[in-house]
Each structure stands twice: as C-alpha cells, then as structure tokens.
Design a binder for these strands. Structure first.
Lengths: 331, 331
DNA sequence: CTGAAAGCGCTTACAG
DNA sequence: CTGAAAGCGCTTACAG
C-alpha cells in the first residue's frame, strides 16, 4: 500500500503539502496540486483510515448495543441504523447483550476504547454510570427505546399512551376483563406501558388483572406461563395486553392449548408490534412502532452530536414516536 | 481517557514496561507487574485500539455481510459471530444487504478501504469478482451458508442431504404427494436442497410437485402464494417442504385459510429451522442448523486466517454442518 | 504557498 | 528485568 510519503516523494513535495492537497484543507498551488493528484493516482494511493482515525480521533464508526435481535423491535431498528449509517458513510459496530448487564458492561468497555464516534444503546438500565462516563469522555450517546438515563439524548415512544389506548380499544370492542403482561419493571418502557394500563383501568372502574411473575421477563416462555397463571386466577379473562410480540406469541400458543378461541373468547394485543404479527396462523393485532425510522433517526441524531461536539453544552435531544394501532385477527 | 503514559507515570516505570506487563509479552518482575496492574486499574486504563491497530497493522475488526436478519437463520449466525468476536476481542462491522446485489457491492467497497481484518459473508452471488479482489488484497474471506465462490473458505451445511432426508421422513409418515418450495436458483443452498428433493423423489418413484414461481424468492409472501399455486395445481398435495422458515409460515397461514388441517391434511416441514418454529400456534417441524455454532466457527476460521496470513498459500478451509430434524406438530 | 516538526497512543527491536 | 528511542501513517499548528 502506497503511503503519503510515497506520494510526496513522487511529487517532489512534503507530506504535509500532499495531505493539504488531498484533503482540500488549505490553498495549494494548482500546479503542485495537479502533480500531487497525478502521483496519488499513479500509486493507487488510499489513505490509511487508522492513521487518520488516530490522528483526528475519528473512526467513522457508530457503536450499537441492543438487548436482542430475535423477534424483537430491535431487529428493525438495527436495520434502520445500518441503512442510514451506510448512507452517511459510517460503519456500525454491533453488540447484542441478551439483556444481560454483565455482557452489556463488557460491550461498553470494549467500545469505549477508542472504537467509536458515538453510541446508540437500548440499555439494561444497570450500567448507567458507565454509560454516563462514556458520554462524559466525549462520545455522544443516544438512548433508543429505553430512556433509562434522564437528561441524555433519547428516541422513544409514548408508551404510557400506548398502554392506555390499548385498554380503551379493547373496552370498546366489549372486553371487560382485561389482563396485562408486563416486563422487567426497571426498564422504563415496561413500566410506562403498565402505568398507561393502570390509568385506563381506573378510569373505566375495572379491576387490574395481572400476575407478579409477568413483571420479570418478556420472552415467549414468560408470555406462555404468565398467561396460564392469569387465566387460572381470572377465569373470566377476555383480553390480554402483552408488552411485546414474543409474549403475545406465548399467549396465543397457550390459548390454543387451553381451547380458548382468539379473539372470540380472549382478545390479544401486543404493545410493541413488528412484522411478525402479520405472519401468523391467527394474525395478531398490535401497536406498531416505525422501527426503521427510529433507527435512521438515531443515526442522524448521533452524527449531529458528533459534528457539534465541542459546542457549549446543548440540552439533550429527545424524539418521541407514536405507536400506531394495526388491527388484525386476534382482536 | 487514561493512556499508557498515565499508567507509566503512576507506576513509576517506562511506558514500554507497562506495555509489556499488560500484554504479557515478555517477563516483567512480579512486583513491577503488580504496581502496573494497580495503576491501570486505578486509572481505568483501556488501550486505544486505533493506536494498537496502526502500530500492528491490525484493526481487530471483522466485517460481516448478510442478506437479512429478520426471521432468518442469519439472525442466529450473526449473534454467534458477535459472541465469539467479543470473546476474541474483535469488533464486528455489520452490513445487511436485503439480498440486493447493489447494496452488497456498496458494502463491500466500504469495507475494503482498510476497515477490516477479515470478511464473513453470505453473498448474493453477484459480486464474486469483487469478493475475490478483496481476498487477493490480503483480507481473508469466509463464506457462510452460501459457498458461491469455489476454492474459497466456506462454512456450509449438507443442503442436498437435508432435502433428501426430508422427503424420506415425510414418506415414512405416509405422505405421497410431497410438494417443494425453493428459492433463487443462483444461490447454492437453494439449488442443493432442491437437488436432494429431486433425488429422493426419483428414488421413490414419486412425481415432483413444484411451481416455477417458487424458485424466485423465499419470503413469507412467496411461501403463501406459491403454496396456493401448488395446492391449485396438485389438489392431492399432502405435504410441503419449504426451504426456509418464513416460507413455512406462509404455507401454514395459507393452509389455515384453505381449511386444510396441518398436519392431518398437509404436513409442513422447513429445511432451515431456527427457534421460531417452536413458538407458533401450530409448531413447525424443521431441519435445524446450529446457527450460533456456525457463527462462532466463522469467527474462529477468520482469525486463524488472519493469524496465518503470510503463510505460503494454504488450501481453502471448508466446514460442513449437518442439519438436525426437530419434530414438532406440523408433521 | 510550502516545509519542518510535533504528536495521536501504542509496540518492539536494541541496549544495558 | 527495564529504559530510551524509533516509528506505524497521518494531520496541523507554526514559521517563513
């Protein structure tokens, strides 16, 4: 690989002049410039990105940490991130934590060592200190979906309203015994969805139908088992709101085994839909988020932050998306 | 960010000693070592990977190009890649192409400019020349799932046998009218699965049941429409083999709409299973690939290639995994 | 308009 | 066993 030095020698100038000519970073005499271009072309010169990165402290890479890609809204978001980053000529360094704080910590530590220009993260909420350190060290952080850390850039959705609206939607369809499956209560979207559910149920003077075990996890298995428990405790159950799709699949599966018809006996709606809902034997109604768009926005926000770093402290940015009801067979 | 220099100062030694101690690259007096470790810990020292990269000519980053993450075996493989890379202290630069050759080309060009030490790719088969150039320029390439380029490292599965075995499995269950849904015939796994199907059907003196449109795509929609066509042309159809899960979901959906019971009227099996099969109302039998392990192996192979680059031309490596039958309700 | 020099943060022969 | 020095390939004040 030809280096700046080779080009300089061939063009009979100093490396600094070559650098300035090639980067258009200050005026260089047209004749000199031409000679330099010719030399660079002849040698097939490509700048060494690592040297540039080291010198400029820029790597043109964005770190992304998400809990999971499988059957999760983060699959779509990651795709959106990837597309927008590519467009902006940034690379994406991806880490999946499986929701495990230890794995998340490891990823954060790896990424902070000069790997990335910005970090996009949906965190477990357990490494907030470390994340704040990273931001303080000059790497802009964008929280997506989960705004675990206040006063830090974030792109989220109106979870409370989503939970609230789902109840009213089911009520209007005739449901009166509406169960709710949550998730880890430390994670803000799960907490807020539940709050929306609570508010609506109070307004409608309906009793809350929940089981404690559902505030622990949100996998298919959790959905399955928690729905079973819900049904056991509240035999009149005629609707279930699940926080995410994978839970919803678990509920649908359970209902089939219990010979409950969906939606005739029990309606099911997921509060965080993505395409899977439409690909089932019984398609599932869901509140859907524009995942691709969220991903793209995250990259745009990240790059804005990178470019404006050094500006006197601007206030944190915040973007709120709205979930849209997509009616399918399960309601 | 603390640097080597900071650690050296705190530990009252030279930076070179710190480097040696931290990297275990030559003997350092235990006492000194201890002091260095303590200092590094106190300062929260993390090496600057870009500086290391520049010095060593290694970027400690692996490029990954896959067609899709959604409802695809590549989700699991990517996760495996990510895990192993993390373990080996490599970063992963991810690109999704959506199966689009133009997007793939763009990703390849971006990655080649000094970004990565190795490339792991499941290619569209349309950029083979470019991929070979990259390999020739000294960046090892590992093909996963799709060994589109002969005589180049690859990790694949025994697709032909998988197709063949699926037929015999269905035959033994009693099916005699076994349809097959393929995919883009330029892509080797799709081609080979079909060949396995053909071989078995010939052996059993059964007529092939296929529709031309199924050799174009493998999405849910393709599965749905192609199964409809299959059923229309062959009303006796009593089993469908699909190349991938998303197709399988489409078939299951169609069967429900057509009031065909699965598996009583029509059996369904997917040749490239991953967890989704177990999460459905009617769970789906599938030939399952060890996706995580494939991903991990790919990283290991990539790193071996990186470390052995410079060795006189070794022959390409090749790893073949076997799919395992996971029986569920759909058969 | 251009050169000489310093330095990004690290590793690694070379001495001693 | 450890230090001093050179250098990876680039950029950028600083002179002139």
């Amino acid at each position: 690989m030809a280096t700046l030095k080779d080009v300089a020698k061939l063009a009979c100038v100093d490396v600094s002049t070559v650098s300035r000519a090639l980067n258009n970073t200050s005026y260089v005499h047209p004749d000199t410039k031409e000679r330099i271009y010719a030399a660079a072309k002849e040698l097939g010169y490509h700048p060494n990105v690592m040297a540039q990165a080291l010198r400029q402290g820029k790597r043109h890479t964005i770190g992304v940490i998400v809990p999971s890609l499988f059957l999760s809204v983060f699959a779509g978001i990651t795709l959106g991130i990837e597309q927008e980053a590519q467009k902006q000529n940034y690379g994406v360094l991806l880490c999946c934590t499986s929701g495990d704080p230890a794995s998340e910590k490891e990823s954060l530590n790896r990424l902070r060592s000069g790997f990335i220009d910005a970090l996009i993260i949906a965190s477990t909420g357990r490494n907030s200190r470390l994340i704040q350190d990273i931001q303080a060290s000059g790497v802009p952080v964008i929280q997506i979906i989960r705004d675990q850390i206040p006063h830090m850039n974030s792109i989220v959705a109106d979870y409370e309203a989503t939970g609230y609206n789902a109840v009213h939607y089911l009520y209007q369809l005739g449901s009166r015994h509406i169960g709710f499956l949550g998730g880890n209560d430390r994670i803000i979207p799960f907490r807020n969805r539940y709050q929306g559910y609570q508010r609506a149920m109070q307004e409608l003077h309906l009793p809350e139908l929940t089981v404690p075990s559902s505030f622990v996890g949100h996998s298919f298995e959790h959905g399955y088992r928690d729905a079973k428990e819900l049904l056991f405790q509240f035999p009149d159950l005629d609707a279930v709101i699940t926080s995410v799709d994978s839970q919803g699949l678990g509920v649908m599966r359970l209902m089939k085994e219990q010979k409950k018809r969906v939606p005739e006996d029990v309606r099911v709606i997921s509060l965080t839909g993505h395409t899977i809902g439409g690909l089932l034997e019984t398609t599932m109604t869901a509140m859907e988020l524009p995942a691709l768009e969220i991903g793209r926005s995250a990259v745009q926000m990240a790059i804005e932050e990178i470019d404006s770093s050094g500006d006197s402290h601007t206030s944190p940015r915040r973007l709120v998306f709205h979930a849209e009801l997509v009616e399918r067979e399960s309601t």
